[in-house]
Design a protein around this nucleic acid. Structure first.
Lengths: 183, 183
DNA sequence: CAGCTCATGTAATACGTTACATGATTAC
DNA sequence: GTAATCATGTAACGTATTACATGAGCTG
């Protein structure tokens, strides 16, 4: 059976880039750097760290105050990360709740459908602002994570801009359908 | 506890648009119409149909050959669909395995990193072709599913085109980083 | 009558979310 | 000394994937 385990490798990769960290540190880093690319909950992460330890991909380098465990990636872990990066084909999962709803908008009144799209556009605008703030808040260095993080950030901006334009195009199409020229 | 249950509503919505169908029909329709928006496996779908029946949102209208069950959406089901469409805020889940890997490309050699991006670009080209074929294979009518399906298709095309351009931009950035002008 | 498609289902496992639980340390 | 933050963990449940199982009906 083929397991994918992206979360596992996300944790492994971040630990490498951070040069070791605790679960708590890792969780915060997750939210800041890749909240827009891969989400993880606290309970998921702590569980995965224990499994990674059991599998020998990371180890507890030292223990701090409040039961804090500072993890460090092992050589086996580095190998596993490299293997995953280059040899495991990424699995493309397409799931978009907004597009899913779009399919069924014929079930509501035309003005309700347009309202739905306008709401999503407004929500997107808010997220665009948040992304801009995030970009300003990060202090971009010369390290790998900053370099590649910036590339991912660019993707996010382009993606949102594209989607914003598409919403406007959809609204235009909806309007045209409700007011056909052939009257 | 808040449950989201998109698959449930995807099935419900498709059943409405199809004006009733069997699980088998539904599965095929799922693949054709929304394979790019929401994926569902056979076992998931059959299970959900039974749960929808138990909850009174759909009912077995008639039984055919080989144990075939023709489902039909009830009034309660229609109400549930409408409710979900307009009153349950869509949950945005961002998970992109390719972008995730991008974050860690600093762990491999520059040429391996560029190779990875080029591979993804090539895979995307193939999917773009497949999407074009799908578009040609569908016979677009005047019904709601065709209308909204066409809007979703347009999103898919724009999204892929955007991503394709971004890949090229990334490759340019990678090349620049490896050959900095300041020598 | 053999092979394909139609048709539905279950079991095992993996992955993800929410809620609960607990306690140490630090800052004021 | 009390409130906020640091820090880790478990339990219950929901959602998704893979594999297995079974058989009826149609097509040549």
């Amino acid at each position: 059976m083929l397991r994918n385990m992206s979360l596992r490798h996300a944790a492994l990769g971040l630990l490498v880039e951070m040069d070791g960290a605790s679960g708590y540190d890792l969780l915060k880093m997750f939210e800041i750097t890749m909240g827009n690319v891969w989400q993880a909950t606290q309970s998921q992460l702590y569980g995965e760290l224990n499994r990674l330890t059991a599998d020998g991909f990371i180890e507890v380098a030292s223990e701090g105050p409040r039961g804090r465990k500072e993890y460090r990636v092992t050589d086996a872990g580095l190998g596993e990360l490299r293997h995953w990066l280059l040899e495991v084909p990424p699995k493309i999962v397409r799931r978009d709740e907004i597009l899913l709803r779009l399919f069924f908008l014929g079930q509501v009144e035309p003005d309700e459908a347009a309202g739905f799209v306008r709401e999503q556009a407004a929500a997107l605008d808010a997220r665009l602002v948040a992304l801009g703030e995030l970009e300003g808040a990060i202090d971009w260095g010369e390290d790998n994570l900053s370099f590649y993080g910036r590339l991912a950030m660019e993707y996010g901006k382009r993606s949102m801009a594209m989607r914003r334009e598409w919403y406007d195009w959809v609204l235009k199409e909806l309007a045209e359908r409700d007011t056909p020229e052939k009257r």
